[in-house]
Design a binder for these strands. Structure first.
Lengths: 326, 326
DNA sequence: TGTATGTCTGTAACCGGTTACACATTGAGG
DNA sequence: CCTCAATGTGTAACCGGTTACAGACATACA
């Protein structure tokens, strides 16, 4: 690899001068600058980021920690983060945490060891000491942290919208699948839906669920229709679970949306491709990723930040698992 | 941050000794070792990877370059890579190339600047100079490079299996959606299918497609049924395209699989969730990711490697877009 | 003419590790 | 008791950048 010394020798100047040229800092004579630039070009030189990072104690790397990139919701978040970071010349060190504190700690550890300048995380426990003790800017994505920077969607409004959609379209006996208790955003959705139904004095039941995995979701779907066979409206905790419910309903010979209406949450790409296509509450995942990146960059670069927590809007996406309104 | 100097002072030894203890290299007296270990624990010290990387000119970082993590096929590859790398203590710098040579070069550049020890890439042009001139181990994933390490699925056999499945199940007028011409694996699938149909002297048509994106796929699906309305069997270049074809067929009022049979390629998670569920040729994406990581690790660590190119088996997954055989 | 200021450049210390080398100590074997 | 190898430890150079500082020179101004 060619180093700054090679360039210096080739251009007949000192390394300090080369450094000044590359970073466009301090005084450099026009002629000298040209000589150095020529040398850089001829030797095809690019500075070693590691050496830079060592001296400055700062890299151009950002840590990104997601539960599981295989879950169709997260690639969009990741892509949003990546695109925005890329625009400002930051690169991502990426890890799947599988919601394991152990793995999370491990990753945070190596992030620090690699001098990352910031961290974006979708952890279930933003208030854990692992984050509090970090003297690095951290942005929580799709998660809510008390009093720490975060970007998330308005789950409560989403829950409300889902419930409202079902009620308006005539569901009388609604079942809410309550998402994992340890995920605050999931609980917000649940709360929003429950509040609206309470307000309208509509009868509803709750089925508890503990994860967002499809394999588990099938189990809860079966349980749902066994416990509440006369349900005519289901609010699922996300689109994966909604898909499982849809499948189970069809398997039981129910007509969707005639016999049962179903509303999901997230609007993952899959949702529009199902038959019938899934009605759902859309979260702007890609934009949330971008927003989180934007926020982190502001912290890293010391730009003043007005809103440290950003709540993104949600919207009801009407497809074919809810009845058409006249 | 606590450095090796702090530990040395705290333990009353030199930095060299601390280094020896951490790396378990050279002679260190038992008592000294304990003192150092205590100091490490008390100060909660972890070595700075950047400094290490600078001296050794090698990091514990691997570059991973995928076209687009948002495409549901790639997260599984990525996850396979990540899991295997994680087991050996390597971390990933991740980038989306969008099949753009520009972005690819950019990423490769910064990978090198960050002293990555290896690179896994799903590029469309493995033989480009950008890779040839690299003096880094590179493994091509889901792509075929002439004479360079790569991991991919047996596309030709896959194409053959797809065609065979349709023929066995009675399709007489088959249309093959030929995938993007610049993607070798896609062409292999096409070739495999065409060969089998030639062999059986079955009439078939070809519709050209240029990408794997869903929006485009819908267009080709419409074109397909317009140009060949009597088609009773479709071999799609991947599951995304197959999904679009399925939608279009249903929209046109065709019964699937009675009127038209459809076979996809990849077996992305979506496929089993469609109604009717998609019959497809399964590629073991997760395992391919793992295999690529495994191969790269062997190169990095200098382990002798017997097979530099690994072809993974494919299998026909029978679901509901093909007729049941008796 | 003397001094201050601005321009230009190089030397060397520094970032936090690793390791070559020198040196001291110990124990075994003759 | 001497020699030699094995063991244990520290000093300092090195990785490839950045930057504080000093010195040289030119120009402006009193």
């Amino acid at each position: 690899m060619t180093t700054i010394k090679d360039v210096a020798k080739h251009a007949g100047v000192s390394v300090a001068t080369v450094s000044r040229v590359i970073n466009a800092i301090g005084y450099v004579h026009e002629d000298t600058r040209r000589k150095v630039e020529d040398a850089v070009r001829e030797l095809n030189y690019t500075p070693n980021e590691v050496a830079r990072s060592l001296y400055k104690r700062k890299s151009r790397l950002i840590g990104l920690l997601l539960p599981d990139i295989t879950n169709p919701y997260f690639p969009q978040l990741a892509r949003g983060v990546e695109d925005r970071m890329q625009e400002s010349g930051f690169r991502l060190i990426f890890g799947n945490s599988d919601e394991s504190k152990e793995k999370e700690k491990d990753y945070i550890q190596t992030f620090i060891q690699n001098n990352v300048v910031g961290l974006i995380s979708s952890t279930n426990d933003p208030d854990s000491s692992a984050y509090a003790s970090l003297n690095l800017p951290v942005v929580f994505l799709d998660r809510i942290a008390s009093d720490r920077p975060s970007v998330y969607a308005d789950g409560r409004e989403g829950g409300r919208l889902a419930a409202e959609a079902l009620v308006e379209r005539g569901s009388k006996r609604i079942t809410i699948l309550q998402g994992p208790e340890h995920i605050r955003t999931a609980q917000d959705r649940f709360r929003g839906a429950a509040e609206l139904l309470e307000g309208k004095a509509i009868d509803y039941h709750i089925v508890h669920t503990a994860s967002f995995a499809f394999a588990d979701a099938e189990k809860w779907a079966r349980q749902l229709f066994k416990q509440h066979p006369d349900t005519d409206g289901v609010i699922a905790s996300n689109d994966i679970v909604a898909t499982a419910v849809l499948h189970e309903a069809l398997r039981l010979g129910k007509k969707v949306p005639h016999d049962v209406q179903i509303v999901g949450f997230d609007d993952i790409p899959l949702s529009s491709l199902l038959s019938p296509a899934l009605s759902t509450i859309r979260q702007p995942a890609y934009d949330m990723g971008r927003a989180a990146a934007e926020l982190l960059i502001a912290f890293v670069e010391g730009t003043p930040v007005v809103n440290r927590t950003i709540q993104m809007p949600v919207a009801f996406v009407e497809r074919d698992t809810t009845r058409k309104m006249l």
